[in-house]
């Protein structure tokens, strides 16, 4: 038997946690909760919406979306953290009139990724 590494064992534990965590968050991610987040991105949020917001925001930094301020009062763009790109950020061409609008787009994107198409596992917290 090939000897397993500590990294592999830790990854196994992470996968167990992610399975449980993602199941809980998917059950919490209702259309009402998503509506609440989109309506008021900066909160305050209900306990359930806060839990979902944290889940959507705790994905690993690689490939994660940030908001880029393009001027003193905006507009704002969304970029994806990509080491090696200029500024380590691949910036989307769409401009948003408020950073809250940009947050709405990010919420919607992440919620879709997180839930995934019906019948699939979607993108997990650990991805």
């Amino acid at each position: 038997m090939v000897q397993r590494t500590t990294t592999e064992r830790v990854a196994e534990l992470d996968a167990v946690f992610d399975r449980r965590f993602n199941a809980r968050v998917r059950s919490d991610l209702t259309s009402d909760v998503l509506d609440e987040l989109l309506r008021n991105p900066l909160g305050p949020h209900t306990d359930t919406a806060s839990r979902v917001r944290r889940a959507l925001g705790s994905m690993t930094i690689t490939g994660k979306q940030l908001i880029l301020s393009l001027g003193p009062d905006g507009p704002w763009a969304i970029g994806v953290v990509t080491v090696g790109a200029p500024g380590n950020l691949v910036v989307d061409t769409d401009a948003h009139h408020s950073y809250e609008d940009a947050m709405r787009v990010i919420f919607a994107n992440r919620a879709a990724q997180f839930a995934g198409p019906v019948g699939t596992e979607g993108t997990s917290h650990g991805n």
Binding site: G57, S58, L66, S69, V81, G87
Partner: peptide, 26 residues
Amino acid sequence: AFEADQAEIIVSHTPIVDGLDLALQD
């Protein structure tokens, strides 16, 4: 904001960076 998974969690919103942050990344 460019290196930590939980940067967004501690501030409760998606980090907002500016051009100086990109220059710093370069």
